[in-house]
């Protein structure tokens, strides 16, 4: 029983990780809590859904479509709602991102209606028994996509020139600029990557729950925030591990304590972290400013 719950926790956690990675990357380069990130996830889910319904596409095309469309949305968000807003007022960009949240959610309600929509079956449902655990083909698919995505992203951040530039900008804008990094471009790339990952996470969530709704972004946005704090602000590896941890904790508390207490426990963790480990479980970020 416990193994089964751990698998379920891993599934839930993988999607939290994917969203939290984006939050963390954006927070890293801009010191900005990009609240609209959950809505990008929602938009990704709908784009995946419509790719599947209208184009009769398979799940791979849906994932690619959501990735590209959400990446473009990320670029648009930077150009239209981040760059023009003054950096001198610390709250201005946060409020601008809340504005984006409202616009995206209302556009989704207007276009798709305010109800849940069923996500058609795109992966043939099969169950596999691995010792004490039953795992479905859908679960395996989601897990593989999430793990592959995280591995690619980790390699990108740690091993490529652009990845180093992103880390340099996250550590200090001025230092990065003095080394020849075009900081504006790095911010743009970071938004595109984060948004593309959120889009994929949205499609995976639609596949997992077999439905999507214009309101699915909010919960994910809040959970992603908890994960980011858990993993340490601006720490990508922390976001990956933190997401899995939160997923495990939620599933286990739902299984052994009760489903109604699930969110209570999540936010109790958040408060405990803020009280006792404000830099997160793996936090290394110092507050040297940007």
């Amino acid at each position: 029983m416990i193994y089964q719950q751990l698998i379920n926790g891993l599934m839930l956690g993988a999607s939290y990780s994917l969203v939290a990675i984006g939050y963390t990357l954006i927070f890293g380069v801009l010191n900005l809590l990009y609240f609209a990130h959950g809505e990008v996830f929602m938009v990704g889910a709908f784009i995946g859904l419509y790719t599947v319904i209208l184009a009769g596409a398979n799940i791979y095309v849906a994932l690619a479509g959501a990735m590209i469309a959400c990446g473009a949305l990320g670029a648009l968000a930077v150009v239209a709602t981040v760059r023009p807003v003054s950096k001198d007022h610390p709250l201005a960009q946060l409020i601008s991102s809340i504005g984006v949240t409202i616009v995206l959610q209302n556009m989704a309600i207007y276009i798709f209606g305010g109800q849940q929509m069923a996500f058609p079956e795109t992966i043939k449902q099969e169950l596999y028994r691995l010792g004490p655990v039953i795992i479905s083909s859908v679960q395996i698919f989601i897990l593989v996509v999430a793990v592959v995505l995280m591995a690619i992203l980790w390699l990108f951040i740690e091993r490529t020139k652009m990845g180093r530039a992103i880390r340099a900008v996250a550590e200090n804008h001025e230092t990065a600029a003095l080394l020849g990094v075009n900081v504006n471009r790095v911010v743009l790339v970071t938004f595109v990557i984060s948004s593309a990952i959120a889009g994929i996470a949205g499609v995976l969530d639609g596949v997992k729950n077999s439905n999507v709704s214009p309101f699915m972004g909010l919960e994910v946005a809040v959970k992603g925030l908890v994960v980011m704090l858990l993993g340490g602000l601006g720490n990508v590896t922390g976001a990956m591990v933190g997401g899995i941890l939160l997923g495990m904790v939620e599933i286990l508390s739902a299984a052994y304590i009760g489903t109604t207490q699930r969110d209570f426990i999540t936010f109790a963790i958040l408060i405990l972290i803020l009280l006792f480990r404000p830099s997160g479980l793996f936090g290394t970020r110092t507050t040297e400013g940007s």
């Binding site: 180093r164 340099a168 550590e171 230092t175 990094v181």
Partner: peptide, 14 residues
């Protein structure tokens, strides 16, 4: 103004 969270080698590459 070194990048403290990067290795010496990564700083040089930057």
């Amino acid at each position: 103004a070194i990048l403290k969270r990067m290795t010496v080698l990564e700083n040089l590459r930057m």
